[in-house]
Design a binder for these strands. Structure first.
Ligand SMILES: [Mn+2]
Ligand SMILES: [Mn+2]
Ligand SMILES: [Mn+2]
Ligand SMILES: [Mn+2]
Lengths: 218, 218
DNA sequence: ATATAAATTTAGGCAAACCTAAAAAATAAT
DNA sequence: ATTATTTTTTAGGTTTGCCTAAATTTATAT
């Protein structure tokens, strides 16, 4: 069965909230993410449940079924492939792509996804470091930890950042991108801010909320 | 103002029916093209008229305003650029692309269109030979005539075919593509069928309905 | 245990884009 | 010039996806 754009957005949101262990996701969380109201969410949950894409019991949140997970993974795959395309082929910057990918991910054509994947030579990560599910929905998970948890004096390589335009523009400004080498010079134990040495050149102080949105590999 | 996908499809349909001289287009013609009913068309015409994208007088058909024409040209531009992309970069065949382009043409992002155009190196014609409007909406019109009107013994180069999947597959099968050299060996005056020599090699008989959907340059 | 607060669902509406059937206008045929 | 046919519009419905306000359930605090 073919999903509407709206249904796809709900599935994707549930997927992102559920995490790897497919935890139950609440009505309010979905509403907040999609910018809709709880009442609208309840309505949609009934539809998705009728299609057996989610398991829904009143007042108990929802989890994706296998079928729902498969659909969600395909949407995520398309989103990230398009983001990769926009950056690598069309020279968009990493803060300009999310909104366009939000539209492109709903284009219906299996052939298109697979040809795009081939054309891009099967990229494994999108421009923000998020893994791109393969055709079967398998995700390559790299061992990665939050920058905020890295101890003083350690060095690490940036491999994932949160896909939020304002954050991304800020990171670009201070010279942090995927692959940047960071050395944690000082950690302020009061506010969790960090003094970083970026690529052995610039020293920059970042707040904890920034550090919370960067993941690295030691 | 931003148009819905449905509004864009109406504008494009009106544009295609109006021809270069922007003739009035009838309600029924629009309905037939879009696979909707006349009543639905009337409803939409009121909306487009309120937005001053068309000139609409009850019972008198519609014409596009300058603003409506501009919008329609942009959609056509996007449709054809995407078709070119699908064929040249993703290796789709010319009969597989229309449906996907129908979806892609509605992606909203001015940057995307212009970057795509650059990436493709500003193609002037889509895979069916249809001209791609430039950023300003200008169309390069090549002097071209219908194959059906070519006189016996003349030679001509195919430069435009109708974008209909079944036709396109048939043309591929008999070896006709954009750029093919055709020599009109015989014209049957009874049914207008034509015997062609294709690229100096194969002799093929085509019916008038095929010949009507091929344009050539002498 | 009860009261209060928060989360969720239900009830009733709205706009977009479609539909069918009936009415009105324009066109064609006698 | 009437009548018949075709085209177009109007009237009244439906579905999808959203909303607000009220009711219900669950969670939290006294
Ligand atoms: Mn994104
Ligand atoms: Mn991303
Ligand atoms: Mn096309
Ligand atoms: Mn075309």
């Amino acid at each position: 069965m073919i999903q509407t754009t709206s249904e796809e957005n709900y599935l994707k949101t549930i997927f992102h909230h559920a995490g790897i262990s497919n935890n139950a996701v609440t009505t309010n969380d979905i509403a907040a993410s999609l910018g809709t109201k709880a009442a609208s969410v309840t309505e949609m949950l009934k539809k998705l449940s009728a299609q057996k894409l989610i398991r829904y019991k009143k007042y108990n949140g929802v989890t994706l079924t296998d079928s729902g997970t498969k659909q969600a993974l395909l949407i995520v795959r398309k989103h990230r492939l398009w983001e990769y395309f926009l950056v690598e082929k069309l020279k968009f910057s990493w803060d300009e792509i999310h909104e366009v990918a939000e539209q492109l991910e709903h284009i219906q054509s299996e052939t298109l996804v697979e040809r795009l994947d081939s054309f891009l030579e099967h990229p494994r990560f999108d421009p923000h470091g998020d893994p791109i599910p393969d055709k079967k929905g398998l995700i390559k998970k790299s061992d990665s930890q939050k920058l905020i948890d890295v101890t003083e004096k350690k060095e690490a390589i940036v491999n994932l950042v949160t896909d939020q335009p304002e954050l991304l523009r800020y990171l670009s400004k201070i010279g942090i991108s995927i692959g940047s080498k960071l050395k944690v010079m000082e950690k302020n134990s009061f506010d969790q801010s960090m003094l970083l040495l970026i690529n052995g050149k610039n020293k920059v102080l970042i707040s904890s909320s920034i550090a919370n949105n960067i993941s690295v590999q030691l």
